[in-house]
Amino acid sequence: MAEAGDGQLLQLRQEIDRIDGEILHLLSERGRLAHRVGEYKQAAGSMQFYHPDREAEILRRVMADNPGPFSAEQVGRIFREIISAGLALEQPLRVAYLGPAGTFSQLAAEKQFGHSACFIPVSNIAEIFRQTDSGATQFGVVPVENSTEGAVNQTLDLMLDYPLQICGEVELRIVHNLVSAIPLEAIRRVHVHYQTRAQCRQWFAQNLPRVELCDAPSNAEAAQRAAADPQAAAISTLAAAQHAGLEVLAQGIEDNPENSTRFWVIGKIPTRSTGTDKTSIVVGGAHRAGSLHALLAPFAQAGISLTRIESRPARSARWQYVFYLDFLGHQQDADVQTTLQVLQEQAAFLRILGSYPKAVY
C-alpha cells in the first residue's frame, strides 16, 4: 500500500541524493588540494603535515559560520574527520595513548585527531612520553587533570623529564559505567582505576558498600579483568565493555554529572598564535617570603588570566615547590612575551611547556 505523499517523499530523497553527490565531489576536490599542499611541503623540505593551530582555526571558523540545523559541535566533529582523512592521504599520524583499546585516553585521542590517524596503545603514561620522545609516534595524548579529582601528577612530573612541547588540549566529558557478565547482586569484586574509584565514591557507598575494589591500570584493563573473573564487575567505557563482552548494569555512575578530564597533546612541534590560545609553564621562586606573589603579580599587571595553578614538590630540595601555571595567550603575543621576561627575572627556574590552541569543543 502506497504511503500518502509518496511523490513528495520521493522528490525529497532525490534532492538528498543530489546533494550527497555534490558533497562527494567537493570532498574529492578538497582531498586533491590537501594532497597538493603536502607535495608543496615536501618540495620545500618540510615534513610537518599536521598543524594544530591551522586545524583549530578551520574548526572555529566553520562552527562560527554554521547556519544549522546541525549543532556547532556536530559540524566541528564532521570537519575534524574530513581533516583527518586529508592528512592520512599524505602521512597517517601515529599517536600514543594509554591503552588498551576502549580507554578514555583513546576517546580523547580520537576526538583530537579523528579516526584516520593510527593510534598506538601503551601500558602507562611514562611510555607515552618515551614513544613520543623517541619518534616512534609523532604525538601522545596524556591526561593532565580531572574536574573532580584534580591533577594527574605523573604527567606534570614527566613534562620536566622530557624535552617535549604541549601542542594541543582535549576536554572530554567522562561517563563511568558499571559493567559485568553477572547481575548486580552476584558481584563480589569491582576492578577499577584509582581515579575512577575516587570519582564514584558516593555511588559505591550507596550501591555496593561491601564489595572489594581491585585496582586496575586503566578502565579498559578493568573490563578485561572483569571478563575473566566470574564474580566481578568493572567500571569502564561503553567501548571497553563491548570489546570485553560485558553488559552495562548501571550507566553514568560518576558522582559529579559534569565530570570531565583534560588531556594534553604532546609532541615536538611548536604552534603559532591563533588568537584563542593557552600557554603552560612551570616556574620556581626563591625560598623567601613573598616569592609566590612575585611570580603571580606580573600576570595581574599585564591583565593576563591565569586558568590553573598547581604546586608540586621541587626535586632539587626538600620542602620547596615548583608551580605549574596555565594562562590565556600565546608566547608569541607581545603582552605574554613581556610578562615572561619579567617572570624570568623573578624566578629561580622557568620552563615554557608549550603554547597551544584552546580546546575547540
Rank of each mutant, 00 (worst) to 15 (best):
G168K: 09
D277L: 01
A302R: 02
R288M: 15
T276M: 13
A101T: 10
V190T: 02
T148H: 07
P217Q: 13
Q199W: 03
T271H: 01
P67N: 04
C200Y: 02
S236R: 11
N146F: 06
Q131R: 13
V95S: 03
D215K: 05
G86R: 07
I253Y: 00
F70V: 12
D20W: 09
Q320A: 08
N177T: 06
D20N: 13
T261H: 04
A302G: 09
Q74S: 12
D133C: 03
K268H: 14
Y194W: 09
I78E: 14
P209F: 09
M47G: 14
D229A: 13
G114Y: 07
A88C: 06
L208T: 02
V95Y: 02
R130Y: 04
V170I: 15
D335Y: 01
L328N: 04
A96I: 05
F49P: 06
H176F: 03
P67K: 00
E212S: 14
D6A: 11
M63G: 04
A359N: 14
S355F: 07
R77F: 00
L246I: 02
W319G: 00
Q48R: 15
P52R: 05
G284L: 08
S123T: 00
A244E: 08
I82Q: 15
R32A: 15
T237F: 00
I304F: 08
Q131E: 14
H191W: 10
E212F: 03
H193G: 04
G245V: 07
Q48C: 10
S28Y: 04
T196C: 05
S71N: 11
A300F: 04
L213V: 12
A101H: 12
Q8V: 08
Q206P: 03
P230Y: 01
D17L: 10
D161K: 15
G5H: 07
E149R: 05
E185V: 09
L184C: 07
A226F: 01
I19E: 06
D20Y: 09
Q48P: 02
S236C: 12
P143C: 08
T276Y: 09
A96Y: 02
D161H: 13
R288Q: 15
Q131W: 09
T274I: 01
Q331A: 10
T237D: 09
R318E: 11
L213N: 09
D326H: 02
G284E: 15
E55C: 02
